[in-house]
Design a protein around this nucleic acid. Structure first.
Length: 377
DNA sequence: TACCCGTGGTA
DNA sequence: TTACCAAGGGT
């Protein structure tokens, strides 16, 4: 696009945005705290998924000071089901920095913002422009696609050259005042009109400035991300029972679902022709220090996590002896109290299954016709 | 730099 | 059913 056109481009885009932009919860004010929380939640996450989480989060933690003094597990509980849990741990860390090093006042400078945990180049630009109307550029999924098409960039937008060009354009197109609103408008156009498949160019307010519109190359620009390879794995999850409680383990920071609670769980050999019960019992002893007697398999879940497709086999088991190893965090929890712990989706499904099992046991106390072994004593 | 991190919606 | 995608960042 010719730099001489930036001004009229902006006018057309803003007119469209004022008319057609969505009313979203985080667009109703310029509170940097609220904008920050929304931006973190929206990372790699859809608007529809974020809205209820955003509302609940702000109700429980209205200010950065509330967040800084919270327990990490409280934050994770509010994040439960949203994914990418390091985001939740990072906002906790960042909240503490803001309170301790910035006296609880949100920093306004791009560099200061980007130095906070979980805030990268895009999120720093978003907060600086949306909250403080600084002339800060942004490039994320929507604007990357939009910019590539506007300028007809047919290279790899993730390459060094592509990134340089996109960030350059993102900055050049900004006005001296009103960058926050323009950035919002750019993203909105990318999200709702300049979509991945079948962009609605006829209703695009700036199609006359778009190189791919002129050339008819919208379908091939931008270049798609390289394919991800899916790996099949099989895991077992074991609800180890002692009395009326089950054993939960807090997942450590170097593994998936870090900070969330889960049943004892590990990968087994994928070839599922025979189930090696002795291997499972031995692994449980290794990991927990407990000797167990395996119970029945009560559920199988298929679960996809980015590049893995996991078959999760869920068992119950009884602890017969042994003492829990001290190198990890454990809790014995009654099914009624599972909701008090942040759980991964699969752990949540397993927990539901266990609760259901207990209800069934109560409904059919005479174990004559039930094949599955009762969870009651 | 390449890889890791989750979940749900859509075609 | 599968493949792709979403307001990215950390290491």
């Amino acid at each position: 696009m010719n730099p001489a056109d930036y001004s009229s481009f902006r006018r057309k885009l803003i007119d469209w945005y004022v008319d057609r932009g969505r009313d979203l919860p985080w667009r109703r004010n310029h509170d940097p705290y609220q904008i920050w929380i929304s931006e973190i939640m929206l990372q790699q996450t859809t608007v529809a998924a974020v809205i209820p989480y955003f509302e609940r989060f702000l109700t429980q933690f209205p200010t950065v000071a509330d967040l800084a003094t919270a327990e990490e597990s409280e934050i994770l509980k509010l994040w439960e089901g949203l994914g990418y849990y390091s985001r939740a741990r990072n906002i906790h860390r960042a909240a503490k920095v803001i309170v301790e090093q910035y006296s609880g006042v949100f920093p306004t400078e791009l560099d200061a913002l980007q130095s906070l945990p979980g805030i990268g180049r895009y999120t720093a630009g978003a907060i600086a422009s949306f909250a403080f109307d600084q002339r800060a550029p942004i490039v994320e999924a929507n604007t990357l696609r939009l910019y590539c098409r506007l300028i007809g960039y047919d290279g790899d937008p993730r390459s060094r050259d592509g990134q340089e060009r996109l960030w350059r354009f993102a900055e050049d197109v900004l006005p001296q005042k009103g960058s926050g609103r323009l950035n919002q408008a750019l993203m909105e156009l990318g999200a709702t009109v300049c979509s991945v498949r079948e962009p609605d160019c006829e209703s695009c307010p700036v199609h006359s400035y778009c190189q791919t519109f002129r050339e008819g190359t919208q379908a091939t620009i931008p270049q798609p991300k390289p394919k991800t390879v899916i790996t099949e794995t099989t895991e077992v999850s074991i609800g180890i029972r002692m009395g009326s409680k089950f054993l939960l383990r807090k997942r450590t920071s170097n593994e998936r679902w870090a900070g969330l609670w889960d049943f004892v769980r590990f990968e087994i050999e994928h070839a599922a022709s025979t189930f090696d019960s002795a291997f499972v019992v031995g692994s449980v002893l290794d990991r927990t220090g407990l000797s167990i007697i395996m119970g029945p398999q009560i559920a199988v879940f298929k679960h996809s996590v980015t590049r893995y497709r996991i078959t999760l086999k869920c068992f119950t088991a009884d602890r017969v002896k042994g003492r829990l190893k001290a190198n990890e965090e454990w809790q014995w929890v009654q099914p009624a109290d599972f909701n008090g712990y942040p759980l991964s989706v699969t752990a949540r499904q397993f927990a539901e299954q266990l609760k259901q099992q207990l209800v069934n046991d109560h409904e059919t106390p005479k174990a004559g016709k039930t094949k599955k072994r009762s969870l009651e004593h």
